[in-house]
Amino acid sequence: MRIGVLASQGAFAEHIAILRQLEVEALPVRLLQGLRGLDGLIIPGGESTSISRLMLAYNLVTEIRELAKNGLPIFGTCAGMILLANKISDLDAEPIGVMDITVRRNAFGRQTDSFETELKIPVLGEKPFPGIFIRAPLIEQAGSEVEILARLANGTDVAAKQGKLLACAFHPELTNDLRFHQYFLDIVSGRQ
């Protein structure tokens, strides 16, 4: 199994390290040719405007959109979720826009409002998942084909799945908990 990790900017090395722990071939993707022959793609956390500028400059946006429409599994965390959403408040950039969700950037405030909390994520089992929210976005609205996977105690939606597309507002790549990445690999291999 070959998983690409978009490496334009952000915490791509952390995703690659987790994929390698799960014994999967993981490759950084910066240019078009890196998108060939992948079984799945991860778009990491980082600065969404920065990542989107670099994706546009090297023609990655249209290509990833096409790959998603043709069924390539994609997992976006934080900035990655923003770029997958088809509606984003306050982003003056062209997103990939393949998930039927409306996302608000920096929805919890500035860095001093960043937080950690335990999340109940039923598809990952009983044990709570460590949620690390850093200048995090949230899901304001989701279409009928979207399954919400995680909610904060106040009812805010923070993780979603639509077909083979997966997105979360927090950072599984900053934890030692491999379950979210394993869940994505199960989508890639067709077990989910």
């Binding site: 490496a7 334009s8 900017q9 952000g10 915490a11 791509f12 090395a13 952390e14 956390g45 980082g46 600065e47 920065s50 934080c78 900035a79 860095q111 960043s114 937080f115 950690e116 690390i132 929210f133 850093i134 200048r135 950072h171 900053l174």
Partner: peptide, 13 residues
Amino acid sequence: KVKAGLAQMLKGG
């Protein structure tokens, strides 16, 4: 984690 984590999000930038 959120303090060091924000720096991780800035990497490559």
